[in-house]
């Protein structure tokens, strides 16, 4: 058999075997048998040197050509088989995607915390710093400096829980004491909000709690006006309840503001037309506000002829109730997980 015939026969055999290789392992075995260090093509080429001299050039060229052809064929076959093999593995790896997922364990922030953080962020954008004050307060800060003297019936508006002490100490009835504390230690301009717990001696029912949260706002500077108060509260209402909300002022009395108002937002549910949620009035009361009383400014050493300011108070639970449709304020300190779980997604 001539060298050429020998190689032709080798090529036909190898080709046939490669076509028969059913999987990647067979293909790799084929490569080893033919092209590996002990493969027959390799051995042939290694044996070229021992051929008669006249046959060597032909055998070398043809042998190398065959090696290239077979390597090419192998690569094609390997790629085909590898792709097939991958598909098979993926098919075997299929799952029922409708089974429940592996849940990460997640809790939830309390709705009151969520509301305080949200308000704090909104007011930060409006230039208000968030500060905190003591919950056990002196009567001086809780009442006297807020123009609520002991001998005036206005003092009775706050049903107060007293703390045993030689002086008059109370659980703060509102976040307003921080008005005086902040102004005593800073010069205008002042822009702060004060979130926190407040306490009243009050029987508990669906709309009354003895412990709840407020957020106090205070802005004092030259040229602060009641229109600024309305604008600030309008901005707040729009951030919380939607871009077309409006604020309504109603004359009201709080000893530490004059003029004093309570403020309401038009009901987002009915657009102010009147519905079940706003009890047909079209308005939802949000809190009390007004221009800081001149006697409060004087009490902290500010000149009321030079400076003016506004103050407002919001009920945190009330806002959360308006936002989330909670109808019983006791749920907030009830801490039933079936309640808290619903606040796992941001409100």
């Amino acid at each position: 058999m001539s060298v050429q015939e020998q190689l032709d026969e080798l090529r036909d055999r190898a080709q046939g075997e490669l076509d028969d290789a059913a999987d990647l392992a067979a293909a790799l075995a084929w490569e080893k048998a033919h092209l590996g260090p002990k493969g027959d093509v390799t051995l042939f080429l290694r044996g070229v040197g021992s051929l008669p001299t006249e046959d060597r050039p032909l055998a070398g060229r043809a042998g190398n050509a065959l090696k290239i052809v077979l390597a090419d064929l192998f690569e094609q076959r390997r790629a085909t088989l590898a792709a097939h093999d991958l598909e098979q593995r993926l098919a075997a790896d299929a799952i029922d995607v409708t089974l429940p997922g592996r849940p990460p364990s997640l809790g939830a922030e309390h709705p009151v915390s969520q509301m305080i953080d949200e308000l704090s962020d909104i007011f930060a954008l409006l230039g208000f710093q968030t500060v905190f004050g003591p919950e056990v307060e002196t009567a001086r800060y809780n009442f006297d400096l807020l123009n609520i003297p002991a001998d005036h019936p206005a003092r009775d508006v706050w049903d107060t829980i007293h703390v045993e002490s030689p002086g008059e100490l109370v659980l703060r009835t509102h976040t307003s004491p921080m008005q005086a504390r902040v102004m005593e230690t800073t010069q205008p301009p002042v822009r702060v909000v004060v979130p926190g717990r407040v306490y009243r001696y009050e029987a508990q029912d669906a709309s009354h709690e003895w412990m709840f949260h407020q957020l106090e706002g205070l802005a004092v500077d030259r040229h602060i006006t009641m229109a600024d108060l309305k604008g600030t509260l309008t901005e707040l209402a729009r951030q919380l309840f939607g871009p077309s909300r409006r604020i309504r002022f109603r004359c009201d009395f709080f000893p530490f503001v004059e003029p004093g108002v309570d403020f309401a937002v038009d009901c987002a549910l009915c657009n102010g037309k009147g519905c079940r949620v706003c009890k047909g009035t079209g308005w939802l009361e949000m809190g009390g506000a007004g221009m800081v009383h001149p006697r409060v400014l004087e009490g902290v050493g500010y000149d009321p002829a030079r400076y003016s300011g506004f103050a407002f108070g919001l009920g945190i639970e009330r806002l959360a109730m308006m936002r989330s449709g909670v109808d019983d304020v006791r749920a907030f300190a009830g801490n039933d997980l079936r309640f808290l779980r619903q606040f796992a997604r941001a409100a």
């Binding site: 930060a124 230039g127 710093q129 301009p189 602060i224 229109a227 600024d228 309305k230 600030t232 004059e258």
Partner: peptide, 28 residues
């Protein structure tokens, strides 16, 4: 001021935002 304003009505108030300088807001 309150006496006059409450009779005239608070609806007349425009909504503006406070002007003037403020200190940078720092987070507690």
């Amino acid at each position: 001021v309150e006496e006059a304003a409450r009779v005239i009505g608070y609806d007349m108030l425009p909504a503006t935002l406070p002007s003037g300088e403020t200190a940078p807001v720092r987070r507690d």
